[in-house]
Nucleic acid binder design. Structure first.
Lengths: 344, 344
DNA sequence: CTGTTAGCGCTTTCAG
DNA sequence: CTGAAAGCGCTAACAG
């Protein structure tokens, strides 16, 4: 039952040629150098015998594994599966496979994973949601492993990345709120050691004056993590400060969901009393109550681009590359126009 | 910069011993056979040199890769990430890595993936959501690859599986509805070529009489897939048939979400006019409107168990093993008691 | 165009 | 307890 694996040698013997000829005949890159008739016979026989090249031998010999490591903080966080899917599909189309790791946002764990992956000779690394100064990512890149970060980027432009046009997203969200009459807009900012957290806040601050948004430090709360729990906590913090606001701009959807939950608990109606905007348009936020107005990013496409960049780097494109994808605003039920009387 | 990888030989040379001694000293299983002092020196030097064993060489030599393939229909379907996470974490604790593939429910794709994974010498396979007769799974298992299916199982008990107590889940859901006064309960059944679809329907039919639920074939609709779209379609089908019902039992949450959407479009209130029960308790269904009453399954734990079974099989536990996990009912806002006047 | 040779880095007999 | 030797299956020079 456990029929022995058929090797190159077996095919060679059956075809009456040498193993190296079989190797050449089966590799599209070297096939041209072999007699066409031989190629045909070899291909046929290898198929009949059910020959499957041994990846370990290939890898040992060439020190390429056709495997790339994909590291996310937590695949259970709904923003990652589409990205992973984009990576996986693109990779597969090129004969590469994805090996997956979760860090739980822990750098030590990330370090271990990268070490483990490197030991098994991965050809490259896709790192989702690194921090702005991510030693692990930097070291891997410095060590010669092709690396591309996705969703966020390092401050160091040496490492390839795929991210979104943060400024454009923030501007759209704010313009929307302002057009609805909101001026006292609170912000739940993301962790400032992440590129997204820092850039989104920076954009808010930059556009605040231009758009006529109230400049009040009491309206800015800082989340320590992109979690529902932090969203709730920040909302409480904003309320305790007693600076009135009619809308909240959240640095991501999970913070927004937390804020919504806390609002509900305090019997503050959304969008009746306060409008809420999220960021990411992660799955299901169109089905929650109220359906969330948010900035849509291209999770899947990010994965596709990341894989493409990685593949190019593996094929020797030395330079780091950076892709920046456009975003769009998705208006749903969590934002509404201020009645004239309410306008402040 | 691209410092050459340090090999066993390098460590051996530095330690003044033979490579095979280093190999023995570094392997916990054979370490006992080496002089303690030598072990210590070797370990120390290998650490100082930053020695990382070459996985390809190990794999070529032993034909074990410490890698297992995890195949899901679509990682973007929210029920899979927790399961994948459970597998990954358990595997990692044992020095194994997970390589991920998506099939989109396509058997041909599944076949390709399994072939690809097998070629790279995976030590085992976790297959999520196979059909009852899944050739690919059967063939892989027959071919000697340790296989465990998760979430669903084959009709063939030869292949290990981790599933839930379907009958218990269905009974809880129905008992809940009946206790609320519902007797005319419609069913949106899952695909019957899946174990979950078939078993949940079978349980419904079995308990229907005992519980005093109306026996009316017009109240059963069959979904062709576990998708929101099919949920919507089935709901329309049920309505068109003009057989009244006060509650709907859906074979999974996505069908329920679709049903909810279709209900909303027709201005039928849930739970006001009709109660809805889902199945799985997938992430976010507690935040939708109305929060979904559903049967909670242990996605994460399934992954953990699957990995454990697989590891045991790899270590030579010949027999197939089957784990069946308990479920619980989570009552939320989508179900409510029938007023006495409404009771049919 | 094809065969020969060597060796990737590791584990595992087999001697000693 | 340790060294020597062989070889897993493959590719990449190098001859011919």
């Amino acid at each position: 039952m456990t029929r022995k694996r058929v090797t190159l040698r077996d095919v060679a013997a059956a075809a009456g040629v040498h193993a190296s000829t079989v190797s050449r005949a089966l590799d599209p890159r070297t096939r041209a150098r072999v007699n066409a008739a031989v190629v045909q016979r070899v291909v046929e026989i290898s198929e009949r015998l059910g020959y499957r090249p041994n990846a370990a031998a290939y890898s040992l010999r060439t020190s390429r594994s056709r495997t790339i490591g994909v590291i996310v903080p937590d695949i259970e966080n709904p923003i990652f599966p589409p990205m992973v899917r984009g990576v996986e599909r693109t990779l597969l189309a090129h004969g590469y496979y994805a090996i997956l790791g979760n860090t739980d946002g822990d750098q030590a764990r990330e370090h271990m994973l990268v070490k483990g992956f490197t030991a098994r000779g991965i050809d490259g690394l896709v790192l989702a949601s690194v921090n702005r100064e991510d030693r692990v990512a930097r070291d891997a890149a410095l060590g010669g492993t092709p690396v591309v970060t996705v969703n966020r980027r390092l401050d160091d432009p040496t490492v390839s990345s795929v991210v979104h046009m943060e400024d454009s997203g923030v501007l759209r969200a704010l313009t929307h709120l302002v057009s609805l009459g909101h001026r006292r807009i609170a912000v739940i900012a993301g962790p400032q050691d992440t590129s997204t957290g820092a850039e989104r806040l920076e954009s808010f601050l930059r556009h605040r004056e231009t758009l006529g948004i109230a400049d009040d430090p009491r309206l800015i709360a800082f989340a320590g993590a992109y979690s529902e729990g932090e969203g709730e906590r920040c909302l409480e913090e904003l309320i305790v400060r007693r600076a009135p606001f009619t809308a909240i701009f959240c640095a991501n959807d999970r913070l927004a969901i937390g804020a919504l939950a806390a609002l509900g608990r305090r019997n503050v109606a959304c969008p009746g009393d306060v409008s809420v905007v999220g960021y990411n348009d992660m799955p299901m936020v169109d089905r929650i109550h109220p359906p969330l107005t948010t900035v849509r990013v291209q999770q899947y496409q990010m994965g596709v681009e990341a894989a493409a960049i990685l593949l190019a780097m593996i094929d020797g494109a030395g330079e780091a590359r950076h892709a920046v994808l456009p975003v769009e605003l998705v208006i749903r039920g969590s934002t509404r126009a201020l009645a004239a009387a309410e306008a402040g």
